[in-house]
Design a protein around this nucleic acid. Structure first.
Length: 492
RNA sequence: UCCUGAGUAGCUCAGCCGGUUAGAGCAUCUGACUGUUAAUCAGAGGGUCGCUGGUUCGAGCCCAGCCUCAGGAGCCA
C-alpha cells in the first residue's frame, strides 16, 4: 500500500503481495506478512496473504539460517519476511523476495493441520470451512463474492437508489415464500399456555409469534412508495428442507423496488444489473476468474465429452455481457417446449402438455441451455402459480389469466431473479388475497400503500449466492457462502 | 421430503465369491540433495473399516435400523 513512485518504501510498513507482484520495481527493501503455502527445498517459501491468488516466492538463505527456524516454516504457518525484492532467478515468477530476516508469527503443526499441500475435495473443505479460505479456490471465490457485493451497491448508488434496511425479525408469514424459522424467547420445554392449552405468545418477547424474514419485499415496497427507488441487500431465511446444490437456509438477497416502473422497466433494470456486476468482477478479479476458469476446465476433464460445457467460464461470462437476454412469455415458452425434440421423443421426465402448470427445471434448462443458449427472461406466468402481489393482466382471448411476473433463468443455475410488476389496485389485490387465503388484517400496513397514493411499481429479488455461483463457475451453493447453513448443518 | 450412490490411514481411493497379518498414491516424519515450481531420491510411522444390532465356525464384505455426505428431483432465490 505504501508504494511510492520514488522507489522509497517505508520499511516498517507491510506491503500486500498483490501490490508487490504487480510492481515494476525491483531492488527495493520490503516487508511482507502472510501464510506459508509450501516450503520447497529448504529454500523456497510460497507465501500468500489473501490479497491475490498469486504467491510471493520468498527465498531463504538456508545455509545461514538457524535450522530450528527452518523447521518452523511449515505449510499454514504465519510468517513475516523482510528483504530485497529482486527479479527472480528461476522461472515461474517475475519477482521474488530475497529474505534477510524471517520471523514465525504463528506456528502450524503439519501433523494436525487439515489443509495439506495437495488437492482436497470440495466436500472435505466444506467440513473445514473455517480454514478453506486458505486455499486458492476459496480465496478466489470470496474475493469475487466481495467484488460482486460492492458492484451491486455501486450500481444502485449510481442510479440514485436508496439502500433500505428491512427487518430481519418479522411478524408476517403472509407472503408464503416458504417455511419460516421461529423467533422466540420461550423456554421451549415449558412455554406459557393459555386457557385452551395453546402456547400463549402474548407472553413472548414481541407479544406475538415472530419469525426470521423470508423476504424484505413487502417492506421494500413501503420504502419505494416514498423514496421512489430503493434496494435491500441482506440475509433471508427459509426453513425448507431443501437438500440441493442451489438452496441454503440462510442466503443473501438483493431486492430492488421501484415506483413508476412497469414490467419492461423492471426487466431492463435486472438485465442491466446482472451485466454491470459481471463486468465489474471480470475487470476487477482478472487472476481469480482466470484461476476459476482453469479449475472448471480441470474438473470438466473428468466428465464425458458430451457433459462438458461448450464455453469456458470466462467465455460464458463475456457471452452474457455481449448478448441481450431472450425475452418471451410463459405461453410462448410452453409452445416452444411442446414442439421441442425432447418433448416429442418423450425424453422429459415431466411431459409438457397443457397450459397452466409450472415449468420443471428440466424445461427451464432446455430453454436456456439448448434452445436459446443464453439467459432467458420469462414473463406473464399463469396467475394460479404466482404470488398474490403480482399485477393481474387482462384475461386473454383464450381465457388464460396471467400476471406480470418475470423470472430470469441462467444456464446451470436456473432461476436467478424472480420479480414482477406489483398489483397497485386495491380491489384487485384484496380479491386475490381472499382467493389465496392471505389474511388482510395482518398486512394492513401493506394495503395502506394501495389506499394512500398508490402508483404502478415493480421490483425483483436476486439471489446473491446464485449470482456468485454463476460468476465463479462453482457447482454447489454451499461453496460460495463463507459459512453455509443447510439442513442438519450449522457448524462454525 | 423422495430417488440413486457413498462412508476403509490425515486426504483421495482400491479391497475378488465371506476366510490368515486390510493395501496404494498423496500428505506427514527421518535422511540425502540444494534454484525449487505438485521438487526429486531412499526409508519410516500411521486403521474402533460411519454407528447399533443381527446372520455365520468366521464379516471391511451379507441382512436390518440409524447417522452423515454427494448427485438428481420437489419447494424456490
Amino acid at each position: 500500500m505504501y508504494f511510492c513512485r520514488s522507489n522509497f518504501i517505508i520499511m516498517s510498513q507491510r506491503i500486500k503481495i498483490k501490490a508487490l507482484l504487480e510492481s515494476e520495481q525491483t531492488d527495493i527493501q520490503v516487508l511482507v506478512k502472510g501464510w506459508v503455502r509450501t516450503f520447497r527445498n529448504n529454500q523456497f517459501i510460497a507465501l500468500n496473504d489473501g490479497s491475490t491468488n498469486g504467491n510471493l516466492q520468498v527465498v531463504v538463505d538456508f545455509e545461514n539460517t538457524d535450522p530450528a527456524l527452518l523447521k518452523r516454516i511449515t505449510t499454514g504457518a504465519a510468517i513475516s519476511a523482510s528483504g530485497t525484492l529482486v527479479a527472480s532467478l528461476g522461472k515461474g515468477q517475475k519477482v521474488e523476495l530475497k529474505a534477510s530476516a524471517i520471523e514465525v508469527l504463528g506456528d502450524c503443526d503439519p501433523e494436525t493441520y487439515p489443509i495439506q499441500p495437495k488437492k482436497h475435495s470440495l466436500e472435505f473443505l466444506r467440513e473445514n470451512a473455517h480454514l478453506r479460505f486458505r486455499t486458492n479456490t476459496f480465496g478466489a471465490i470470496f474475493r469475487v463474492r466481495n467484488s460482486l457485493a460492492f458492484a451491486i451497491h455501486q450500481f444502485f448508488q449510481e442510479r440514485g437508489f436508496v439502500y433500505l434496511h428491512t427487518p430481519i425479525i418479522t411478524a408476517s408469514d403472509a407472503e408464503g415464500a416458504g417455511e419460516t424459522f421461529h423467533v422466540t424467547n420461550f423456554d421451549l420445554a415449558n412455554p406459557p399456555k393459555d386457557d385452551t392449552g395453546a402456547v400463549d405468545f402474548k407472553e413472548d418477547f414481541f407479544g406475538r409469534p415472530t419469525n426470521l424474514t423470508v423476504s424484505g419485499q413487502l417492506e421494500g415496497e413501503l420504502g419505494a412508495m416514498a423514496l421512489s427507488d430503493i434496494y435491500t441487500f441482506g440475509p433471508t431465511f427459509r426453513a425448507e428442507n431443501s437438500n440441493t446444490t442451489r438452496h441454503l437456509a440462510e442466503f443473501w438477497m438483493i431486492e430492488p423496488e421501484m415506483a413508476f416502473y412497469d414490467l419492461n422497466d423492471n426487466m431492463d433494470l435486472a438485465e442491466a444489473l446482472l451485466k454491470y456486476v459481471i463486468k465489474y468482477a471480470l475487470e476487477k478479479n482478472v487472476e481469480d476468474i482466470e484461476f476459476l476458469t482453469q479449475r472448471l476446465l480441470d474438473e470438466e476433464k473428468q466428465k464425458p465429452q458430451q457433459d462438458r460445457s461448450e464455453m469456458t467460464l470466462i467465455e460464458k461470462l463475456q457471452f452474457c455481457l455481449n448478448n441481450d437476454f431472450e425475452r418471451l412469455t410463459y405461453t410462448e415458452a410452453i409452445d416452444i417446449l411442446k414442439e421441442s425434440t425432447p418433448n416429442k421423443k418423450k425424453k422429459f421426465q415431466y411431459p409438457v402438455e397443457g397450459w397452466g402448470t409450472d415449468l420443471q427445471s428440466e424445461h427451464e434448462r432446455y430453454l436456456v441451455e439448448k434452445h436459446f443458449k443464453k439467459p432467458v427472461i420469462l414473463t406473464d406466468y399463469p396467475k394460479q402459480i404466482k404470488a398474490f402481489y403480482m399485477r393481474q393482466n387482462e384475461t386473454d382471448m383464450n381465457g388464460n389469466e396471467t400476471v406480470r411476473a418475470m423470472d430470469i433463468l441462467f444456464p446451470g443455475i436456473g432461476e436467478i431473479v424472480g420479480g414482477s410488476q406489483r398489483e397497485e389496485r386495491l380491489d384487485k389485490l384484496e380479491q386475490r388475497m381472499d382467493e389465496m387465503g392471505i389474511p388482510k388484517e395482518e398486512l394492513w400496513w401493506y394495503l395502506d400503500t394501495r389506499r394512500f397514493g398508490a402508483c404502478p411499481h415493480a421490483g425483483f429479488g436476486l439471489g446473491f449466492e446464485r449470482l456468485v455461483l454463476f460468476v465463479t463457475g462453482m457447482g454447489n451453493i454451499r461453496d460460495v457462502i463463507p459459512f453455509p447453513r443447510f439442513p442438519k448443518n450449522a457448524e462454525f
